[in-house]
């Protein structure tokens, strides 16, 4: 089971503090959305994100997965906006009663390119950061351990539940339950949901006991196994990026370059 998209590696990008990568992703996203020039997001993507991907050595995982995610989004946006962009009038092509309009396509292209930067930045973060390190960094920045617990558990529980649901389905099918067709599916509902829900409830009770005996939620000061590397240079880089993002927002509000 693949729990995360994390690609194991030890590149300089992998070793960065997750917060630095998070600030990077936010900054490129904010910058992409702040200016209206259509060439701006692709430029950002090429000069900021692509080099980082190459340095991290994850390009063979990054680009295929990224394209698989981004292309459908971009196509959907183009079709939706192309046909239904409000106030557009220059018709490019007509398909039956629907008309593909120029203004809509321009807006869609711009949105898709901005989303490309957003997805690229955050995907790079996910790809080069162990989830555990990410969570540790969050807690060490002052996020409450309980919040981090909930987020971490939520990230992992879905595949675990899916695995259990499959186990239950197999157990019931092995008792002759047919789950094909609409009737079969409806009839399978109780034998499937019952064990799943009751099992989850039992687990919650047991887990509460386990957490209690392992000291979770005690008021004492927590420490962390996972060391999150940080440096003055990274702190400076984060400050600089935050400044860039802020400048971009201000420029956008003032109407510079739009």
């Amino acid at each position: 089971m693949d729990m995360s998209s994390h690609a194991v590696g030890d590149s300089p990008v992998h070793r960065l503090n997750p917060l630095t990568k998070l600030v990077f992703a936010v900054t490129v996203t904010v910058s992409a959305f702040a200016f209206t020039m259509i060439w701006w997001p692709p430029l950002l993507f090429c000069v900021a994100i692509v080099p980082m991907v190459i340095v991290s050595g994850t390009q063979r995982k990054f680009f295929p997965t990224f394209l698989a995610l981004w292309v459908p989004v971009a196509l959907t946006v183009c079709l939706m906006q192309g046909f239904f962009y409000p106030g557009a009038h220059r018709v490019v092509a007509g398909i039956g009663p629907l008309e593909l309009k120029y203004e809509g396509l321009v807006f869609a292209t711009q949105t898709a390119l901005r989303v490309m930067v957003l997805m690229g930045g955050f995907f790079l973060l996910l790809l080069t950061t162990r989830p555990g390190t990410m969570m540790s960094a969050m807690t060490q920045r002052g996020m409450s351990p309980k919040t981090v617990y909930v987020v971490s558990a939520a990230l992992q529980i879905a595949p675990a539940l899916a695995g259990r649901a499959q186990g239950i389905m197999h157990a019931q099918q092995a008792r002759g339950l047919s789950v094909t067709g609409l009737r079969g599916r409806v009839r399978a509902l109780v034998p499937m949901a019952g064990p799943l829900i009751l099992g989850a409830l039992t687990d919650v009770g047991d887990r509460a006991v386990a957490m209690e005996t392992r000291g979770f939620g005690t008021t004492r000061h927590c420490t962390y196994l996972t060391e999150v590397p940080d440096s003055t240079a990274q702190r400076a880089a984060r400050a600089a990026m935050e400044l860039c993002a802020l400048t971009a927002v201000v420029a956008n509000v003032l109407g510079v370059l739009r």
Binding site: R164, G167, I168, H170, A171, Q172, Q173, A174, R175, G176, L177, S178, V190, P191, M192, A193, G194, P195, L198, G199, T202
Partner: peptide, 20 residues
């Protein structure tokens, strides 16, 4: 799976996966 169930009865290790 449901056809094979006529020939092979399988008792799973964990009963809680089936009791409903």
């Amino acid at each position: 799976i449901a056809d094979l169930a006529r020939s092979v009865g399988f008792v799973f290790q964990n009963p809680d996966a089936q009791l409903h």
